[in-house]
Design a protein around this nucleic acid. Sequence first.
DNA 1: TTACAGCCTTGACATTTGTCAAGGTTTTTT
DNA 2: AAAAAACCTTGACAAATGTCAAGGCTGTAA
Lengths: 192, 192
Amino acid sequence: MLHIFHDYLHAKFPITEQEFALIEQVAIQRRLRKRQYLLQEGDVWKYDAFVCKGLMRTYRVDDKGQEHIIQFCPENWWTGDRQSYVTGEPARYNIEAYEDSEVILIPKADFREIRMKIPALNNFIFDLLERSFIALQNRVNSNIMHTAEEKYAQFLKTYPDMSNRVPLHMIASFLGITPETLSRVRSHQLKK
Amino acid sequence: MLHIFHDYLHAKFPITEQEFALIEQVAIQRRLRKRQYLLQEGDVWKYDAFVCKGLMRTYRVDDKGQEHIIQFCPENWWTGDRQSYVTGEPARYNIEAYEDSEVILIPKADFREIRMKIPALNNFIFDLLERSFIALQNRVNSNIMHTAEEKYAQFLKTYPDMSNRVPLHMIASFLGITPETLSRVRSHQLKK
DNA sequence: TTACAGCCTTGACATTTGTCAAGGTTTTTT
DNA sequence: AAAAAACCTTGACAAATGTCAAGGCTGTAA
């Protein structure tokens, strides 16, 4: 599992083997079966998590018991609850494996130390956060200026492979529409 | 104008006068009258911008000519188009002064250099980005799980002073609803 | 195999939100 | 002061989306 992370980092910025060893020392490897949880609402999230394999979903449950998916996280992406991570508050999100997965966890304090020792890593993480920010902003955009149909079309364009990996009702949840509406939007698009 | 930025930074993290002088050397001070633009769609955004005074709005225009407000930025906040900044693409957003404003611009290349020279600044900017990310994520949340009425209630809670500074139709635009819907939501809330 | 659970679709109907048009008020400009 | 523009509200109606219920399909478990 670690070699995937190793290759990923090497592809992203120059990192020596000595530097990678620092990460290796503190990395926690975790295998998750489908439906196992990485984080449950109420717990405090204290890691940086890299998904080597599989697919995680982050969701939240509202007062009516409805699930709302905030993020899909496939292999080679990072996941976690940044709000809980930063503030120390209990998480409002659940993170669950939707496929059998392999995840590397790096405890917050360790990761901070290592980032300070490896400036290139620190810069990379900064870039990553910047890109996540941009992605989120585009999503807000999509939410406030598009109809259900346009949002779905944009989803397909932005995450083309995701549509094969998760059921439609989860895509609906991610988009903030009901499964019925998504179903109708789709049958409408077919007619074109 | 610079002293406001000076005080802001001092309040946020320890910074020496020598360090601040580095920033001062490259800082561009700009005064904007209401309705003047800081950025226009199509231009490339190359600054980090701190608002000392006033209020900026970032918005986008869709195919039908409709404006959609992405961000309000009052004094003591940072603004800009991060997508254009990071990728070098032409901006899709407009940034306009909604009140007479004073803004400090720091060119991207200079800011990067200074951040590398002042680790505490770099860490602070990282924290800031992290918090912006969290705020955006909460907004996505609100968008996908709430009705117009709930979104407005949450807006009032999250940005209590903003409701006194901008007209209602701009709040509607920010929330992704029509002014008429907002008006009805408000009259409905009064009845409670 | 049978039974079951999860998933997707469809129809009928309710609710929410958008659109268009009008009017009144306030603010800004001339 | 007068005129114009911006802003907010309201009504009537249309369109989009949600809710509820039913049914069929598919893959998995017993």
